[in-house]
Amino acid sequence: MNDAETMIEVVDLHKHFKDLHVLRGISTTVKQSEVVAVMGPSGSGKSTFLRCLNRLEEPSSGHIYIEGVDILAPYIDINRVRTEIGMVFQSFNLFPHLTAIENIKLAPMSVRKLSDKEAVDRGMALLEKVDLAEKADTYPEQLSGGQQQRVAIARALAMQPQIMFFDEPTSALDPEMIGEVLDVMRNMAKEGMTMMVVSHEMGFIKEAADRILFLVDGEVVEDGTPDHIFNRTTHERTLEFLSKII
């Protein structure tokens, strides 16, 4: 993967919330099939950074290129861009009035204009993949947290995105359910999905991530392989943070 295509390019990204300067000039690139973990202490702007990349938050300044397209350009149809980026949230955000399969087929049918049969076929295949085929007609409230998150992943994958964002996907889960979600994510990484993951799951990051972006106070203080960050870093803030979470 030497000459892999650049999927995401971020140049000098700033974000202000009124007086709060949350992101202070972040620049980075993510290549195809790369798995990038975003780590950092709470309040460092990890989630905001991720949410800026599909414009759930509006960046204050800077440039974001997704597959070479400047998504902050005024003429851009952000909804088209978002179909290429799947997003998984900390609080799952499944639609409570729809069953698992309805959750999954909603966007393919309304946005991609797939027929009901095509969408259901695709949805069932994805549910199979996350090992929840038998829960297709179940409403979210009857699913466990881990199951809900796996449905949410399947829902995002149903749009066949090029990139997947995970915003603390396991933080709201009971410990015994974290594994099942990480397994799904691990498989996706193996299959070559380009992923950005805000997470503190050390085991998962060590195994699956190609790179770690370490954010402190809205700035990237370190950018390196898991091996580098976890074993050889000399950066003070990184060491301090790692000592707290291990």
């Binding site: 759930l56 978002r82 997003m87 639609f95 309304s110 946005v111």
Partner: peptide
């Protein structure tokens, strides 16, 4: 209707009218 619902719909690429129709209004 929780904010996360609208965000999830947006992240899937639903436009505001589709979000209103399929996510907000039914709930």
């Amino acid at each position: 209707v929780k904010k996360g619902q609208i965000e999830a719909a947006n992240a899937l690429g639903l436009n505001p009218i589709q979000t209103m129709r399929y996510v907000i209004l039914p709930q």
